[in-house]
Amino acid sequence: MAMIEKLTRKDFMSDQEVRWCPGCGDYSILAAMQLLLADLGVERHNTVFISGIGCAARFPYYMNTYGMHSIHGRAPAIATGLAIARPDLDVWVIGGDGDMLSIGANHLLHALRRNINLVIVMFNNQIYGLTKGQYSPTSELGKITKSSPFGSADQPFNPISLALGAEATFVARTHDMDRSHMQYVLNRAHQHKGASFVEIYQNCNVFNDGAFESLTGKENRQDKLLMLRDKEPIRFGQDARYGIGLDQDGCLRIIDTDLEGTEKILTHNEYQADPSLAFALSRLGASETEPRPMGIFRDIEREDYGAAMTAQHEAAQKKNGHGDLNKLFRSQATWQV
């Protein structure tokens, strides 16, 4: 057996100078990815990063793998064709919230529902960065930007709810301030067969600085972030004082264990076929009193599109034999002249 040399982050760094603004959250995501792929020992030549347009979409240029920087919004569609044609490859899709939820939202939804074998990573900074600061489909209502001087009147998307509604089989959220959690989530997404959707809260320090500070800042995390863990009670806060339970009207509610104990706290199950609880969890954090869940909302098994296509191809070959032009040309009535 050949010696396998341990890969390092350097193996995954391309020779291109990274051109994001200094201090951008994209740097930490890039580092997390390069370190993770080195740790996993993935084969660079079997790895492809496909992106659309936007700051995040420059990502493939910095990865020493195969890559394509395509056009605005279309990365999931292009990656779909690649993943179907080449089931042997590891295909990643990288984009921002404008790329994937505005101009390309349709492709994202369809890639998820079809369960194309892709890892789709959406950097959410709630702003348009490359075009210098307009509101995005995840910007909060009332957001003041260059294109919304009187406040945005657009109801934002909740990306996790959207992905679950689109029948995604793997849905997760992490953030750029926690490398080890990012790597855990990305690794799990990578292991999942089918379409994986990962939302990463990412700070744009130029046009939307501190958008997630109240959640992801070190001093705020304990109270504001709810770390989802499979088969564990859904708890958060100092000493895990609070938990999530179900109200009589079917809505989630916060349980203070000091008052009610722990028995009514729900247990998280990533592998639950029914998406109802995952969806309810995705709605948490809408108000300031609620925590924002991080981690894996859903990870279920469903045949991926490429596998279904391969099965059809094999069945057709079994039934009709390998494609033969002579047979094709005579597949309907012929006559001699």
């Binding site: 279309r74 044609a85 080449r86």
Partner: peptide
Amino acid sequence: HRNFNLVTFQAEDEIAAVGSALGASFGGA
């Protein structure tokens, strides 16, 4: 004619149709 070395993909729209074809071309199809 799926017994030939071919895949047909009914895309969600015209843009995805050509996009997926381009992705497949990148992959060598």
